[in-house]
């Protein structure tokens, strides 16, 4: 690959990678900032500055860590494994228009890499020996089990029409097979947003601002983390949120693309705008909704599953016609 490249293309590719890296590090901070700011404004507060998450991370990086004496290597390396995996995923998932090409990524590979992160998150939470972390991870495993068919089916229905499981092909703008399916893209995008709310343990499944350990899901899993360990985990989660919102924003943009073609130059700005727009919507939704009772959560997931099933039906109908 590198030998056949002229100097100009090489420089262009390098610049693309650098731009991509910068966006990957800035966007999570901004996304979290937008959600928090929206919630604050909805509650009539000014709220913390947009970049507060960055200041928090800097503070956490300077602190020392307190680690449970029960914990083994899994607890501390877990944070590193999760972040490394999430960074790897950010190069594989087509969450932003300027993602560098040439990285071959498969739908099922992505789904199972997310599962890898989840396994290590659960193990790290149980490694400390804390019952709170264990309850949180038990619920997290339950939610993941319930939401996995929905999110996979949404992506698979796109793949059925695109006749490929390669993510770059499915989300490619030049893919004619999926060019006139705004309905399918919209259904898949909405299913992915709903699934990511569950995956990220946000409202209405879990309240990220809760203060009671017994009702926490994700926060309970982080209860024992501190200092740099916590910083890594917070950043991983923000990046995961950005990547998942980005993926559904791309679906919406494809749906929109059918009605109004926008120039290629605007793609990056539209992707960023899409992610921040979704963050704004989630912030609004979190302000007006309440946390569901644990037993009602499967009901919420079944709405998501219904959307995925509709998407799958559309895909089967389209696939057979072609």
């Amino acid at each position: 690959m590198w030998q056949s490249m002229s100097t100009e293309t090489f420089l262009f590719e390098t610049a693309r990678w650098i731009l991509f890296a910068v966006i990957t590090f800035v966007m999570p901070i901004l996304t979290i900032g937008v959600v928090r700011k929206t919630r604050a404004r909805m509650q009539g507060r000014m709220g913390a500055p947009l970049l507060q998450a960055l200041f928090d991370l800097r503070k956490l990086m300077q602190k020392s860590e307190a680690v449970s004496s029960t914990a083994t290597w899994i607890f501390r390396s877990g944070a590193g494994i999760e972040l490394a995996n999430m960074l790897l995923l950010s190069t594989l998932v087509p969450w932003i228009a300027n993602k560098p090409d040439g990285v071959s990524s498969d739908l099922f590979l992505i789904v199972y890499l997310f599962a890898l992160s989840r396994l290590f998150a659960i193990l790290a939470a149980l490694d400390s020996g804390s019952p709170f972390g264990a309850f949180g991870s038990s619920r997290d495993a339950t939610l993941a089990m319930l939401v996995e068919p929905a999110s996979l089916l949404a992506l698979v229905s796109l793949a059925v029409v695109a006749k490929s499981t390669e993510m770059n092909v499915i989300f490619s703008l030049t893919n004619v097979l999926l060019a006139h399916d705004p309905g399918l893209w919209f259904l898949a995008g909405t299913a992915i947003v709903m699934a990511s709310l569950v995956e990220l343990s946000r409202m209405p499944v879990d309240d990220p601002a809760t203060h009671l350990e017994l009702t926490m899901i994700h926060e309970a899993m982080l209860l024992e983390s501190s200092g740099r360990n916590l910083a890594l985990r917070e950043f991983t989660r923000a990046l995961k949120m950005t990547v998942l919102f980005g993926l559904s924003a791309q679906c919406y943009l494809r749906a929109w693309d059918d009605f109004w073609h926008f120039p290629v130059v605007a793609q990056v700005w539209l992707s960023i705008g899409g992610i921040l727009g979704l963050a704004l919507l989630v912030g609004l939704f979190e302000s007006v909704s309440v946390k569901l009772q644990w037993r009602k959560v499967p009901e919420f997931i079944s709405y998501c599953m219904t959307l995925s099933l509709l998407a799958a039906m559309v895909a089967v109908a389209r696939g057979v016609v072609h």
Binding site: E65, V67, S68, S69, S130
Partner: peptide, 11 residues
């Protein structure tokens, strides 16, 4: 990172 060992959080 500087690491201190301690007991887990038990309220």
């Amino acid at each position: 990172s500087k690491v201190r060992r301690g007991i887990i959080w038990e309220c």
